[in-house]
Design a protein around this nucleic acid. Sequence first.
DNA 1: CTGTTAGCGCTTTCAA
DNA 2: TTGAAAGCGCTAACAG
Lengths: 332, 332
Amino acid sequence: MPPPARPTRDDVAELAGVSTATVSRAYNNPESVAEHKRSVIFAVAKKLGYVPDEMASALRRGKTGIIALLEKSRIETASDRFLSTLYADVIRGLKSVIDQSKYRLSLITVKSIDDIKVLKSGKFCDAVIAHDLQDNEMLKAIRALKIPAVCAFREDNTILPQVRLDEEYGGKLAAECFLASGRTKPAHITGQLTTIKSCYHRHKGFVEAYGSPAIKTVDGELGINGGYESTLKLLSDIKNGHIDSIFVVNDITAVGVLQALQANGISVPRDVSIIAHDNLPILDTLPVRLTSIDISFRKIYSTAAKQIIGNMENGLAMETIVKPEIVKGDSV
Amino acid sequence: MPPPARPTRDDVAELAGVSTATVSRAYNNPESVAEHKRSVIFAVAKKLGYVPDEMASALRRGKTGIIALLEKSRIETASDRFLSTLYADVIRGLKSVIDQSKYRLSLITVKSIDDIKVLKSGKFCDAVIAHDLQDNEMLKAIRALKIPAVCAFREDNTILPQVRLDEEYGGKLAAECFLASGRTKPAHITGQLTTIKSCYHRHKGFVEAYGSPAIKTVDGELGINGGYESTLKLLSDIKNGHIDSIFVVNDITAVGVLQALQANGISVPRDVSIIAHDNLPILDTLPVRLTSIDISFRKIYSTAAKQIIGNMENGLAMETIVKPEIVKGDSV
DNA sequence: CTGTTAGCGCTTTCAA
DNA sequence: TTGAAAGCGCTAACAG
């Protein structure tokens, strides 16, 4: 006896005593098949180990069933290293939704506009999630595919529907947290305030929540050293009691802030409260667990997945805004 | 005029004045087509925007062209969080090779053995890379698929071909580095020495490189606190000058080691040299940049990808051992 | 080197 | 509710 060939729809149909079309319907439109036939079909399928061939149905339907995460090939940059730690969240967010659906996730690297154009004619995927694609020409090429697409983790764009973080809300959460703990003399440490939109919005949300625009803001360098230096500028005010709380635009910079405070004998949260932003794993390694605003890539990308599936099935292409959450530590 | 339908092989064949089979050959076996016809075919294809339909060829060939990264769905654990930071390297390693090939990468979550069985009959993929799958039953189910498979990042197994790290070599590198810098009184801080194989092998490699088995080893708790506590036990020996170098089994634990040394006024590397293991991003946040053994998931997974492609094309299923590299910091 | 031909396994009208 | 029939777009013998 030859090794049993992979069973096909025909085998199941014959054994179940129905037509091949009925087997197909049992899978794709169960309600249209009589209850008793359906159960026979599935029983036979199970016995035979039959599973519909994805490629054949894809060809016939003209749909691949694949959602692609599009990423640009890139040389490592500093911001890349920062993103790396969150990459697992990107994938988990996507998977949490896609695994529950009939779709599958494929990872595609695009080096050029041509790599994008090919996607549609080559039938590589039914829909696209653009991850950290900063290039407007690429976004336009994606739009030109005329397949469902969303863009996540990118500064505001008007080319593709997007899922993005409410950056102002993060600043507001920080302000509210300080206020709730009785801190009323806030400062803000940031960098590239006017050029990086997220910095701008975090600052804006923070300041607006207080209603007074005169909040002491240090617009220095981002990063550990930058945080250290910026903190030195606030030192006397902290010692005077003119500042009792600092919102730092991101965790990395906050590491430097913490180092500077420690080096100068200032205790957190006794002398000054700190709230950081991003809630990166790096916080686990600090002597004080910082309160931080979680940007939750998980949520952004699970939302993106939901949105793209909704788009494929209902045709709605909208923009979604995800609100960050505050994760409390011991620094307030 | 209706919107131009997606061009097919037939359109290209007609316009190029050749048969459809020749068009197909031009793509799949270019050498078998006369040079001049080939160029006409590609020119026409370009003009028409023709790209071969992946699904149709997959069906016809009986191959999907997809390599799947299989992961178990999991609740977050501590080791998971550790792995998370390296997940981007896993994907980059895979992509660096797969993007250069004709294959594509798909991410599949397996919740149960059944999810694995379905892979073959459903034609979801041609080959499988098992990522951090610790369950032997699952590995066996993968083997039963009889498709090319490799297993990466897992303790030694005999079920599937694997790509794994030479853990002993890491220990050896640390020893050699200490010796090269004139340090001759080593100690080792580890944990679960007998239960975790990687700990066992790192220790073994370290000790063997010295040739003397009497190296002071603290088998304490892993993690930041564990590293702190273990270091306290070595404190007097360090102060006495009986220990001039410490190899720490992983970076996280080394963070605690560093904290304990600092708290006790011991300078790195002046009083004692430190080498850690894993080379995680977390090292960037420490006051002293530690020398560390890079486990390079990137390399492990790019190797895994190469191996699986080799397996598909040449049918060789072998085991590969990847050697870690030492990344020098300022701690030796 | 090239053309003809026979499907891969499935879905979806259409008609019953 | 079901079955018959017509392909989806491509590849791989085979014969020339």
